[in-house]
Design a protein around this nucleic acid. Structure first.
Lengths: 125, 125
DNA sequence: CAGAATCCGCAATGATACTG
DNA sequence: CAGTATCATTGCGGATTCTG
């Protein structure tokens, strides 16, 4: 049985529906949809967390990639870093307002992936 | 000025908030958040489109990556392929029901990236 | 027109070791 | 604890050629 699927209008300002190669949104999209970027942002949507906690939650991430991902997100103004100069050091990360706004779009996406993962990898319906 | 940001509860079934390394959702997430996967899915959210049109809209994509991306999304049951055996050939792609459901999450994400791109790359607020 | 097949470079990633 | 530095690897992705 076939069902007709309603076409959703793209509420985007892309001329002729073309996603331009040099568009800045491409870079932003690459950052926020990166393998580890998504997990870090979603993880932080629950509130501020320490370096070690982020490393634990994004299972499998290397220290290098955690540092790199956090730096990129910080430069993008999505994550803010709060370092306490104590020994041993303690550094907390949290979402900025803009990062939090983004996370409200990312959380449903990760949830969807989780809920549909089995059906997708097994080719079920 | 600082503002307090409410913590959003993660409506996910991840134990201890840990995203497991071997979780199938990781693979799914990689597919649907891939560089070209996002653009193809969002493009198709407007309705069925031909190979050549997808190639045009996802500006900068190579034939290889278009083929590879479409195959992956088709295997995942998110995109369906409709080939007409004529000369010259004509092949249309469209979203499955599951793919369409996903696109409703992806479209706002791309729109957000587009709307915030300038502020992000320029470091503005 | 819509691909498939092949070659190939380099940037992204991981592993390891070191440090304030 | 929270990183940085260096090195090794690989597989992603681009360019090209060929075809039904």
């Amino acid at each position: 049985m076939k069902v007709s699927i309603p076409a959703a209008p793209l509420p985007l300002a892309f001329p002729d529906g073309v996603f331009p190669a040099g568009c800045p949104s491409r870079t932003v999209l690459d950052h926020i949809t990166s393998k580890w970027g998504v997990l870090i942002l979603v993880s932080l949507s629950e509130g501020g967390q320490r370096w070690s906690e982020l490393r634990r939650r994004a299972e499998g991430i290397s220290e290098k990639m955690l540092a790199q991902t956090l730096k990129t997100l910080e430069r993008d103004g999505l994550v803010s870093r709060h370092a306490q100069v104590i020994i041993p050091p303690r550094v907390d990360y949290s979402l900025t307002e803009r990062g939090y706004e983004l996370s409200t779009l990312l959380v449903p996406l990760v949830a969807w992936a989780f809920n549909n993962a089995d059906a997708i990898v097994n080719g079920q319906r």
